[in-house]
């Protein structure tokens, strides 16, 4: 009975963590805007946390570079299973406008597996919320499979 309670609350109230991985801030402030009164993702039971050990869903914005790829991997590894990763914005998907720059490795999926890609430069809050909702579907599926 306790197991089914955890299973249900995990998918119903996912805790998200946001990591800025070399973004220009455009997507970051849109992620934050999702948490504020106009968009308010907390109505879906989503809470923003700062500790990767508490998080179920990782939102990553920006390109991966040679310095922060270790940090990104480290944060991903610290998150407990099951977990979902959402890459936000053109930079997080592919490297975007910076893909040719010398210090840029590319999209997030060069370092960690990504479940949902949210397009846009910067991605709009509506798109981010949509991406999170799709990500939650995948997350619920992973919770199911983990049983």
């Amino acid at each position: 009975m306790f197991g089914s309670f955890i299973k249900k609350s995990r998918a119903k109230s996912p805790w998200i963590m946001h990591f800025d991985c070399g973004s220009c801030n455009g997507c970051d402030i849109e992620v934050l805007a999702c948490l504020t009164p106009l968009y308010d993702v907390e109505r879906f039971g989503i809470i923003n946390v700062g500790n990767p050990k508490h998080a179920d869903v990782l939102l990553v914005t920006g390109t991966v570079n040679h310095r922060n790829k270790k940090v990104l991997k480290n944060i991903y590894d610290q998150m407990p299973e099951p977990k979902a990763v959402i890459a936000i914005g053109a930079c997080g998907n592919t490297g975007g406008v910076f893909r040719d720059a010398y210090n840029v490795v590319g999209g997030i999926d060069k370092v960690i597996p990504v479940d949902v890609y949210v397009p846009g430069c910067p991605a709009k809050p509506e798109a981010i919320i949509d991406g999170v909702v799709v990500g939650l579907g995948k997350f619920a599926q992973k919770v199911e499979e983990a049983e």
């Binding site: 070399g22 920006g62 390109t63 570079n65 922060n68 940090v71 720059a101 210090n103």
Partner: peptide
């Protein structure tokens, strides 16, 4: 510093 360095001046 350096976690967000992309090298865009060289672009």
């Amino acid at each position: 510093l350096g976690y967000v360095h992309r090298g865009l001046e060289k672009l």
